[in-house]
Design a protein around this nucleic acid. Structure first.
Length: 908
RNA sequence: GAGGGUAUAGCUCAGUUGGUUUAGAGCGCUUGCUUGACAGGCAAGAGGUCCGCAGUUCGAGUCUGCGUAUCCUCACCA
């Protein structure tokens, strides 16, 4: 039966995904097999599938599918995180469109809307992963805001508080006036923007016309100034030490202090100090015991403390104050200036450094734990070079306490209750009340006397527990004890700190409590053994692909065009671990947007088609039980032995490559094996003459080998392999590629494989002669090999000569001691062949070709002779290496002799 | 400002403790094929001072130093 010559991924992929789901192949329950587990780095609920997700999840799917084939109990846990700021922003926007203001809603009502939104839109990315073929255990899908995971967050918070690792404090933080929340450093993006530098003069107290001039980009903050600083070594300002300056417009007298921080070269050498609104000023303020005046409200308007422009937005106030300052004679000059401005990753609002009361997690001990885990190789990085980045973030002088509170509602509310000045941290209100009663001695306190902290914890404060909580680790230990530690975490290096480091910290902090000493002693307490860092997906100009740039092709549209298998191939074939991948989607020059095209994905699609047609070929053959003629049988056996042995070697390579996460190498080697060795060579070797049948033995062997290839390729390209698998033979129910067995690498003989490679080179040599002389592929040729023991031995081995004759379309292949008249010669290794021509040879062209070849070989021999002429080399290099050089020399010399003979034969 | 990565064919990249015939792959390119599986194909070919300089070594694409280019991370200055 013949199939269509076109493989169509669309129906096929849907069909098999549905089938696998129906069979429940992705689901895992603990049993007596060894587990292989991966937890997905939870994508943001508001997200849609992008190139980074595709790469990341393709890698995870490959690892999990291979593990499943290898007989492990494979479990890949999917899910999403609640992304507090992004989601809250979306919900607020949705409500605004409905005419509802967040401030009019109670916390409970708001959360109701938010959960509704999440139920409606939050699963999109998971549906998209299914299109990619992701074999996640969907029954285990988790969400960081679901009750069980939230309970764990609260428990952990209380635990850390009781251990003294969480504290509340006034700190300079990144304030987003639009979202009205504090952000962690990682959520602020700094970039260069055009600003102005305003030079302003402050009068010295007690003088009539003495001034100091400062420069600032934020003139409205002068209202919060509490000092002027100069460098202690600066001769220009020595006389001012200890004096006071008057803040323009409001006339507050502020001290002139000396601090090494001030750069004498920059600006005027005088620096205004606003401790409430600048990180560095705050530190200087601490050193000099300066007053802190907070002149901003949470929405970015000026506060009462500013005295002027109260209630005006900071940018409007800037304009207004400049007008007043100029009129009052304080403006010296204005310069254009470029500086780095921090904006919120989520709202794009300009971040204000602001002194706020926040909750922090002490990082010093955690950082040491995480560093140690990787240093001791309890957690291994792939590629290992990522250690540098990890270390530089976590080393003592760089690590900072983690600000974990956020001024939002969407998230786990901080379990802290206040009564007067006292804080009570507890898992619930009742316990907090008990604590309060004890602490105050007032037994008549009621819940209404307590007020709960309004804030929630950072999203990452729930996702760092992910490897523990997705297995319900804080509740019961069954699944956790079985699946934990997970085998590998697959993620981009850009979130090394958000996830990798913090998950490691959490694993070491609670692993032993949750699993028990014995289990931990046996299995370890790290959340994962390996971390595979994928690169960033970039466009052809090496820019990170992002929605705002529009330089990312649409993931689903690519799948639509090339099939999931094609896209998986495309993503992977250029994705060496850790290296950023330049994705080849072209950019439309008119719009600057990425087109949904990719040559690499197209290559993947064509690869599917190639395999489909190989299947097609096998299906068209008539099979007979009678033996075929001896010569054909010999070729078939030789071809089969060769492919089988080469496949064994391939399996060995694949195992090694995949264990080292060299997935890109692995898929390329498979690609070449299937396309070149199997399709181009093997199938042509065994292909019967037109309308002739094939013997059952060869046919069955071919099917079995094809089947093995499909298993090997299955993790990479699951759909096409399952489809081919089912077309190779009739299958019993449940005999599916996805749950078959990863083949063992059997024995192979490198020498035998090399012999066939040599025979293939002879075939290519003949084809080259045809090409150069315009001889048709099908015109039978007479070829003579120059007599040599080696060549005779090669051609005498069973089936070899017939195979070469069949592949090269020869009429005869025999040995000769003499040169053959009117022939073209070629050399393979050290063997020389003459191809008899029925036409005049082109003498000039032949001379040119041979002369060029001679030059190459002479150059080669020269370098080898130089090496061997070096006494030190001969004396010091290992015998094996010297031996090899001698062989190189002998071979090269032999080739030169043969080329010279050929030149003489033609008469050049 | 501090630190890190990368530099190999036109493009994207391999090259795993220094030695495997003066460097490999895929794509692209050139030439020839309406070849009874596949033009989404077949066959063959061209194409490289391994960024530069110096060093270590019998031997360097591979190790070291300096330089150049480029990308990134962190911190950022009024």
């Amino acid at each position: 039966m013949s199939l269509s010559t076109r493989y169509s991924p669309k129906e096929t992929e849907k069909k098999w995904y549905d089938y696998w789901m129906e069979k429940d192949y992705f689901h895992s329950e603990p049993d007596d097999r060894e587990p292989y587990s991966i937890v997905i780095p939870p994508p943001n609920v508001t997200g849609v599938l992008h190139m980074g997700h595709m790469l990341n999840n393709t890698v995870q799917d490959i690892l999990i599918r291979r593990a499943r084939l290898m007989g492990y109990n494979a479990c890949w846990v999917p899910g999403t995180d609640h992304a507090s700021i992004a989601t809250e922003a979306k919900v607020v926007k949705m409500l605004r469109e409905k005419g509802i203001k967040k401030s009019d809603l109670s916390r409970e009502d708001f959360l109701k809307y938010a959960f509704e939104w999440k139920d409606k839109y939050g699963g999109i990315i998971l549906d998209q992963l299914q299109k990619l073929g992701a074999s996640c255990d969907w029954k285990r899908t988790r969400f960081t805001m679901e009750p069980k995971l939230s309970d764990a967050v609260i428990k952990v918070f209380v635990d850390l508080y009781n251990k003294g690792k969480i504290y509340r404090g006034l700190r300079m933080t990144n304030w987003d006036p639009v979202a009205k929340t504090v952000l962690s450093n990682e959520e602020v993006i700094h970039s260069e923007e055009n600003s102005k530098l305003y030079y302003l003069r402050y009068k010295i107290e007690g003088t009539e016309d003495e001034y100091v001039t400062i420069a600032t980009v934020r003139p409205e903050t002068i209202l919060g100034d509490t000092a002027i600083a100069v460098n202690p070594k600066d001769e220009r300002f020595m006389h001012l030490h200890g004096k006071k300056a008057l803040v323009p417009l409001i006339g507050r007298a502020i001290p002139i202090i000396a601090d090494r921080y001030v750069d004498m070269e920059f600006g005027t050498g005088c620096l205004k100090i606003t401790p409430a609104h600048d990180m560095n000023d705050y530190e200087i303020g601490e050193r000099h015991n300066l007053e802190v005046i907070d002149t901003l409200n949470e929405d970015g308007t000026l506060s009462e403390a500013a005295q002027l422009f109260v209630g005006k937005d900071r940018f409007e106030a800037r304009k207004l104050i400049m007008k007043d300052l100029e009129e009052a004679g304080h403006l010296v000059k204005i310069e254009d200036y470029k500086n780095k401005v921090g904006r919120s990753e989520r709202t794009d609002a300009i971040i204000e450094p602001r002194l706020t009361l926040q909750w922090f997690l002490k990082m010093d001990e955690f950082a040491v734990t995480a560093l140690e885990a990787v240093k001791k190789d309890e957690v291994s990085f792939f590629p290992s070079g990522m250690w540098n980045m990890f270390y530089s973030w976590l080393k003592e002088e760089n690590v900072r306490d983690w600000c974990i509170s956020r001024q939002l509602w969407w998230g786990q509310q901080i379990p802290a209750w206040y009564h007067d000045d006292q804080i009570f941290v507890a898992e619930n209100e009742t316990e907090a009340l008990e604590q309060a009663k004890k602490a105050t001695g007032k037994n008549d306190l009621t819940v209404s006397d307590l007020s709960r902290d309004e804030d929630v914890v950072d999203t990452w404060f729930s996702s760092w527990l992910w490897p523990l909580t997705v297995f319900d680790g804080f509740e019961k230990e069954n699944d956790l004890a079985y699946y934990y530690p997970t085998n590998v975490l697959v993620t981009g290096w850009d979130i090394m700190f958000f996830w990798v480091a913090r998950m490691i910290m959490a694993g070491y902090e609670w692993g032993e409590d949750l699993l028990g000493k014995e289990t931990v002693a046996k299995k370890g307490t790290m959340p994962f053994h390996d971390v595979y860092f994928t690169g960033m997906v970039r466009d052809s100009k090496k820019r990170k692909m992002s929605k705002s740039l529009g330089n990312s092709p649409d993931a689903l549209s690519l799948i639509d065009t090339y099939g999931a298998d094609g896209v998986r191939f495309g993503m992977l074939s250029s994705a060496a671990a850790g290296n950023d991948i330049i994705f080849d989607a072209p950019i439309d020059p008119k719009t600057g947007m990425a087109l949904n095209e990719s040559k690499l994905c197209d290559q993947g699609k064509k690869f599917c088609n190639k395999m489909w047609n190989a299947l097609n070929l096998l299906n068209t053959w008539e099979i007979v039980d009678e033996p075929v003629d001896a010569s054909t049988a010999a070729i078939n056996k030789l071809a089969g032995d060769w492919l089988e042995q080469k496949m064994n070697r391939l399996i060995e390579h694949l195992n090694k490559q995949m264990d080292e996460y060299r997935l890109s190498d692995a898929i390329m080697e498979l690609y070449k094996f299937i396309w070149s060795d199997f399709c181009s060579w093997y199938l042509e070797m065994i292909k019967p003459a037109y309308q002739a049948p094939i013997d059952r033995e060869t046919y069955d062997r071919s099917i079995a080998m094809f089947e093995k290839m499909m298993v090997l390729l299955h993790p990479f390209m699951p759909f096409v392999t399952e489809e081919v698998w089912h077309n190779l033979r009739d299958r019993a129910a449940g005999d599916d590629c996805i749950v078959s067995h990863w083949p063992e690498a059997g024995d192979y003989d490198n020498h035998f494989i090399d012999e066939i490679e040599l025979a293939k080179a002879i075939v290519s040599g003949v084809r080259d002669v045809r090409n150069n002389n315009g001889i048709k592929q099908k015109e039978p040729l007479k070829v003579h090999g120059q007599t040599s023991d080696d060549l005779a031995e090669l051609l005498e081995s069973e089936g070899m000569k017939s195979m070469v004759m069949k592949m090269a379309f020869l009429e005869s292949l025999d040995m000769t001691d003499d040169s053959i008249d009117n022939s073209v010669s070629f050399i393979v290794k050290t063997h020389k062949f003459f191809v008899e021509l029925n036409q005049e040879i082109n003498k000039e062209e032949e001379c040119q070709r041979l002369t060029k070849e001679l030059e190459y070989q002479e150059g080669f021999v020269r370098t080898v002779e130089k090496k061997l002429g070096n006494e030190k080399f001969v004396n010091n290099a290992p015998e094996k290496v010297v031996e090899l050089e001698r062989k190189k020399l002998a071979d090269g010399t032999a080739r030169i002799k043969k080329i010279k003979e050929a030149l003489a034969d033609i008469g050049c």
